[in-house]
Write a protein that binds this DNA or RNA. Structure first.
Length: 488
RNA sequence: CGGGACAUAGCGCAGCCCGGUUAGCGCACUUGGUUUGGGACCAAGGGGUCGUAGGUUCGAAUCCUACUGUCCCGACCA
């Protein structure tokens, strides 16, 4: 047994770390709080990125790139915004090093102090809105629909690979609109796009909702979120879309002339998802044998293992099958490594979450069949080589659907409606998961609940039906249930 | 930033309490051979400033002090 991972039951955090490491997704780095994303982990991110990028472009957005550094003065222009990020910013104060006159090594050259310090972007609203001011003159310049793929830095106390790192990769969309309504629609449209993406591609169902005032993005009027439920019963915020009102337009004086030749402030949105999605993917589907990937995001969808070794006849047949699959758009790897035995390879590909494994040996060739193993259920079947391409492409769809259904069923089974605070606490302590409860819509109650239960108000679901009830904490009237959970 | 644990080869660990030749084991790696349908076996080999800096001592992986880092549990957060 070369590689083993801690079971989820034994230690969920350790299980997660083991998967990240042993599936080859990421390593710790020499820099505290920062990870190295390894090729296999990055390949998953690329799949996520490419699909989202396509969806953004289909909805009229274009990509651009803004600077990593933000003048300190920019960050202080929007009061709530700076308050939200001030505690976790990396600051550049100097621009030069020099040899240490007292010994070996280098020191910061005290002569090279910057006149104005630069902040490493924790998010780009300020630099972008200072730029948009110059780009927008007329209603004819609107809407401005721009996205950027970038890295950002938030100096977090405690980090975990993919879920929270000091530096992470993301996309941030920043749009400007002539009317409030159009901006609100944009924020909601992206919110829907995110939900569609996570469900269709990540096979991860999400609850769509609005954040409470307390949980809202610093500087936003409304924040929409997609909340996913992880296997340990904790919620994970997987993406947010913000309606920013005219807050940034006012802070950066971004105005335009409307059709009546009147000057107006523009209406704004911003929205983003991060490499955290890779963490979400891990914690939604994986099991005690390793990573489980949905076919639509798997860097390798099918691996063919010649058994017992890659002999020429087997490889020739494997290539024939692989070419058939590739013609259908399936990514296939033929394992040509002859230094490892099949059993080792099986375990390895299971650890890496490859959705389908085909085992091809002389015995199979003689019987005109092949061994098909699916990662999600670990079932194995001997399947005729005739029509194998169709069989596998259908199986990939089936796995994708099965993962979504499994995650959805898990969420259903771990979503509990409660009507009093005793039940609320009991469910969170025993079962965990999502809790749907009535809430009186005050921040005071929200904070009390958080203090007493560690559960946070994840969102006010957009599809929650109107339902008369009383707040589980205060007993005051409420018209709909909201979503609480312990969260990452 | 609080509470706890840990730091010895790429990874996982033993040795430390009770200081004493050349610091050991498993996995991984290299070479050769035998194997090969679920993590092969045999043999030979390479790889270490024992986290860093001080201190005690004739002598420190081992004892003392400080620092740094990592992990787990909290608080903060995508």
């Amino acid at each position: 047994m070369a590689k083993e991972i801690t079971s989820r039951a034994e230690n969920y955090s350790q299980w997660y770390n083991d998967i990240v490491k042993k599936a080859g997704l990421a390593d710790n780095s020499a820099v505290r709080g920062c990870m190295v994303i390894k090729p296999y982990g990055y390949a998953i991110w690329e799949k996520i990125r490419d699909q989202l990028d396509k969806m953004f472009k289909e909805t009229g957005h274009v990509n651009a790139y803004f600077p990593l550094f933000i003048p300190k003065s920019f960050l202080s222009k929007e009061a709530q915004h700076v308050e939200g990020f001030a505690k976790e910013c990396a600051v550049v104060t100097h621009h030069r090093l020099m040899n240490d006159p007292n010994g070996k090594g280098v020191i910061v050259d005290p002569e090279a102090k910057l006149e104005e310090e630069l902040i490493v972007r924790p998010t780009s609203e300020t630099i972008i809105w200072s730029t948009y001011k110059d780009w927008i003159q007329s209603y004819r310049d609107l809407p401005l629909l721009i996205n950027q793929w970038a890295n950002v830095v938030r100096w977090e106390m405690r980090t975990r690979p993919f879920l929270r790192t000091a530096e992470f990769l993301w996309q941030e969309g920043h749009t400007a609109h002539a009317t409030e309504n159009e901006a609100r629609q944009e924020a909601r449209m992206i919110h829907d796009l995110y939900a569609q993406f996570t469900e269709e591609f990540m096979a991860m169902p999400v609850i769509q909702g609005a954040k409470s005032e307390n949980e809202r993005f610093a500087g936003a009027v409304d924040t929409y979120t997609i909340e996913a439920l992880m296997q340990d019963g904790k919620a994970l915020q997987a993406g947010t879309s913000h309606f920013l009102g005219q807050n940034f337009a006012k802070a950066f004086e971004v105005t335009f002339m409307n059709e009546k030749n009147e000057s107006e402030f523009v209406w704004a949105t911003s929205w983003g998802v991060t490499t955290r999605l890779v963490g979400a993917l891990i914690m939604t589907h994986s099991d005690d044998d390793g990573l489980v990937l949905p076919p639509k995001l798997a860097p390798i969808q099918v691996v063919i293992v010649p058994i017992p070794r890659p002999d020429p006849e087997l490889v020739a047949k494997a290539e024939e099958i692989a070419n058939g699959l590739k013609a259908k758009g399936v990514s296939v790897k033929i394992d040509l490594d002859d230094s490892k035995r099949p059993g080792f390879k099986f375990a390895e590909y299971e650890m890496k979450g490859v959705p389908v494994r085909l085992g091809l040996g002389a015995r199979d060739m003689a019987n005109n069949q092949i061994e098909v193993a699916r990662r999600d259920t670990k079932e194995k079947d001997n399947v005729s080589l005739d029509g194998i391409v169709e069989y596998v492409t259908e199986l990939l769809d089936d796995i994708q659907n099965n993962l979504l259904k499994r995650a959805y069923d898990f969420r259903q089974a771990n979503t509990t409606r409660v009507d009093n605070f005793d039940d609320f606490k009991r469910i969170l302590d025993t079962k965990g998961g999502f809790v749907l409860a009535h809430w009186d819509r005050t921040t005071e109650t929200e904070l009390k609940i958080k203090e007493e239960t560690k559960a946070t108000l994840r969102c006010i679901p957009i599809d929650a039906p109107e339902e008369a009830g009383i707040c589980v904490y205060s007993g005051k009237p409420s018209s709909r249930r909201v979503l609480f959970a312990k969260a990452y």
